[in-house]
Design a protein around this nucleic acid. Structure first.
Lengths: 256, 256
DNA sequence: TAGTTCTGCGTATAGCATACGCGATGAAGC
DNA sequence: GCTTCATCGCGTATGCTATACGCAGAACTA
């Protein structure tokens, strides 16, 4: 941690505990940590849409405007909430192959998202810079350390993987939201989608899609884990092709 | 197009031109098409945040509440705008290998996103069901028709690829937004990010990341096309592993 | 012609984020 | 200990947003 910190955006200063502490004035009745936790409780109970400043304040039995003594904006609060929700990464497994490591990494990150599905609805503020986000990044780099990929390639692989995990979580969140809103089961929803497609589709214009719809595959609610693993394996297979072509030092990965 | 259409959600009924037309009453002063186009003009000029019902109405010199005669909600208008913005897919190339086809498909979709970067900020409403979205899906299925993948696998590959394209577009949109907001060039922004990381990072806690930061790779604004192609190649390589393992009929794809 | 449906849109409502500023609190400085 | 200063909590105000409601008029149907 460098001694001289350039002027940080408010969200990062807060996330890293680098906000200047007041020298005088009345004692604070709240802490940033309390506010973030209250926000998390609201999101967990009623979803992201319920997280308003007034709602969070009500959760703490304080006035809405008090919160602005601790966070610059609601945007900042959301950033802090997301970083807290994702938590620190799991411990590194030094004996894992790059593939095992990245596979476990992706699964762990998906698990964190699943515990906080509201989180994927928070627009991303910028490149990873908060403590936990950097922790996850560090872990992924650890697993890629012996692949022979250069720094830029490693970052790109991590970006690809983490975007994949996030998109998976987003789809899960969306189905979850629809399930709650419409009070239908996932399979009922997908069956409805299949039926709707079948009715909309002109087989002359959409022959391939009509065949897919007729196959019934769209009408089933996929097991999310199967879906996730399928896509992840494709990605890891593709990265494997590159790693092998580079003659990376890590030869212990298993073929798909 | 089936004769008996089950009751459709409003956005789909509108998108497919299946809204019941009024039999009597005064002549309409607007059309849905006009409203969508006005929304697109606002988004293109000032970004998604500027697209309010009152702003779209002002663009058309009508009262805000008139719009609700044509769309059920702002959400519906956004769905229509996105489908219109993405437009129909390019023409199918019957002579292309699955890989060439999917590669071109992904690039074309990214190009459409790039023309309408605001679009990635619109939360997805559900599985693809609007006319153009189904058109793109149909094209991707066409390219995968001889891979030996089953219907479910084909859908999963398309999902993986389209989510990848969307995440790429999202990152580009975010950088674009930051560039405009902060009035800095992409390289200045990334240099600032690298500097910020360097100052935040404790090399004991984040050794791998510190090395990446020291390498300078983070401080450069990547060429987005290079970034996109890198990730796409990984995905296509991975899918290729699967296609080869299935002994698909399409053997004309080129190795990476 | 009468009845019905639809149009455009003004008014109202509820909700939201946050600027501003007041009175009180408590630390720093002398 | 007293004074000054910075900060606290939060009431009030502002501006923006989406959309419900209902009126007067237009246009179609029987």
């Amino acid at each position: 941690m460098a001694d001289k910190t350039p002027e940080l955006p408010g969200n990062l200063a807060a996330a890293w505990g680098l906000r200047a502490r007041p020298g005088k004035g009345p004692k604070r009745g709240l802490s940033l940590d309390q506010i973030v936790k209250a926000g998390l409780a609201v999101a967990a109970a009623d979803g992201l849409a319920a997280v308003s400043m007034s709602r969070v304040a009500a959760e703490l039995a304080v006035g809405t405007m008090s919160l602005y003594r601790y966070v610059d904006s609601k945007r900042e609060l959301l950033d802090l909430m997301v970083d807290t929700a994702m938590g620190p990464p799991p411990a590194a497994d030094p004996g894992a192959s790059w593939r095992e490591g990245m596979s476990g990494w992706a699964s762990a990150q998906l698990a964190a998202y699943r515990d906080n599905l509201w989180g994927v609805q928070v627009p991303i503020s910028g490149p990873p810079a908060t403590p936990n986000a950097l922790g996850w990044l560090e872990l992924a780099l650890f697993y890629l350390r012996r692949t022979g990929l250069d720094e830029g390639q490693k970052m790109s692989v991590i970006l690809l993987t983490s975007n994949y995990v996030r998109s998976q979580a987003t789809m899960e969140a969306q189905l979850d939201t629809a399930v709650r809103a419409l009070e239908q089961s996932p399979s009922d929803l997908m069956a409805g989608y299949n039926k709707l497609l079948s009715s909309l589709l002109d087989p002359q214009r959409f022959p391939e899609l009509a065949a897919v719809a007729a196959s019934g595959v769209l009408g089933k609610a996929d097991d999310w884990d199967d879906e996730f693993i399928f896509g992840l394996q494709r990605i890891l297979d593709g990265v494997d092709v590159l790693v092998r072509s580079l003659g990376g030092e890590d030869y212990r990965q298993k073929p798909s």
